[in-house]
Design a protein around this nucleic acid. Sequence first.
DNA 1: CGATCCATGTTGTACATACACCTCAACGGG
DNA 2: CCCGTTGAGGTGTATGTACAACATGGATCG
Lengths: 143, 143
Amino acid sequence: MKQEPAARIAQKIATDCLAVRVRRLGRVVSRIYDAALAPHGVTIAQLNLLAAIGAMEESSRGRLCQALDMEKSTLSRDLKRMEQLGWIRSSPGRGKGIAITPAGSRLLTEARPSWEKAQQAALAELGRSAFAQLRQLLPPPGG
Amino acid sequence: MKQEPAARIAQKIATDCLAVRVRRLGRVVSRIYDAALAPHGVTIAQLNLLAAIGAMEESSRGRLCQALDMEKSTLSRDLKRMEQLGWIRSSPGRGKGIAITPAGSRLLTEARPSWEKAQQAALAELGRSAFAQLRQLLPPPGG
DNA sequence: CGATCCATGTTGTACATACACCTCAACGGG
DNA sequence: CCCGTTGAGGTGTATGTACAACATGGATCG
């Protein structure tokens, strides 16, 4: 009936919107990891991508897009930076495979303690059951 | 004892890292809302910010930073864009307050159905209890 | 064989995000 | 009254993100 006032809609979105929660959570969590990883010159986004490549046999762009729910254009640029940094290598030609370089492996090893610290800090911030809940919220790529 | 191989670290991060989950979730959810809101020429980030301003009496930059866990520099740029679009107005001088314009109110009203659709789609994608879980994961700014 | 289509990858543009640094006005001590 | 501190806000630079458009190489079909 009556037109709902804008202030009321604002209230509703501010309190109920899933995206508000998810995005805020992303900022908070990313900051924790980025701060911990800064001394290694790597961001959590990059470390995540590097780990996804290393955890996957025969990693390809398509598979990485699926696994991480990323756009191909985003992936293209992120990979380019990481290749320039010497952490990965992509075979030339079509259907280029992606491989971690020795420098990339070294980075993973060296950054691991900082990652652990950030993981603990994030768990402390969000509560013990955070991981189980997040896992429930977003099932793995396969299903 | 033995140096853990990089592949094993990659596996661990890829499966256990909270940031991987949170960031992937953010991409998936943001895409749902952005697609629904695209016809209105607004992103979910902007709508969230507009709603936060509208939901808060005496909204200021500092308060918005706190409420949304955003950096002041990020907020500064986001507000600038929204002011250029005519959705908000900021008082000149120091301690500038932020206010929604009539155009901003109109946008909230017009975009509301699309937001509802996206919210339903996101809930369907993530499961019914998603909001409660997210709320539990990240308490409101006040505590 | 050649035209057409399709999958894959890159580029153009725009927005979101943050850290480091800068500016500037207010405020307080001397 | 001057100066130093401080805190709010903005800028410079870099990364992350995505949609649209384009490029390209391989496959398919007539």
